[in-house]
Amino acid sequence: MALERKDVENIAHLARLAISEADIPEYARNLSSILALVEQMSAVDTAGVAPMAHPLDAVQRLREDQVTETDQREHFQAIAPAVEAGLYLVPKVIE
């Protein structure tokens, strides 16, 4: 499956990546060849093989439901670009 210009633009938009016009054909070629590799793998018969969710053959450990964290707001907000009244400020989001 070969990716076209508009596919690359869509992927870049979803990932919030700014890409330059001139690079788009190169990205399309690279991504297409990655997909070609995936297609090759798809040709392998995997019937009867359970999909792998994680490379480690282990299961999730659980923690007890206890509050172990204390308030570190001052710490975290020291590196935030803008804060006010305890809130992180970000450019206006219009719904």
Binding site: R61, L62, R63, D65, D71, R73, F76, Q77, Y88
Partner: peptide, 24 residues
């Protein structure tokens, strides 16, 4: 009060790992 119960994991700071709560 705002952000007093948001720890490094909740903020998605680099290097943190989620650990699942048994109770959920």
């Amino acid at each position: 009060a705002p952000n007093t119960q948001a720890c490094a994991v909740d903020l998605g700071l680099p290097g943190v790992l989620p650990v699942l709560n048994r109770e959920v």
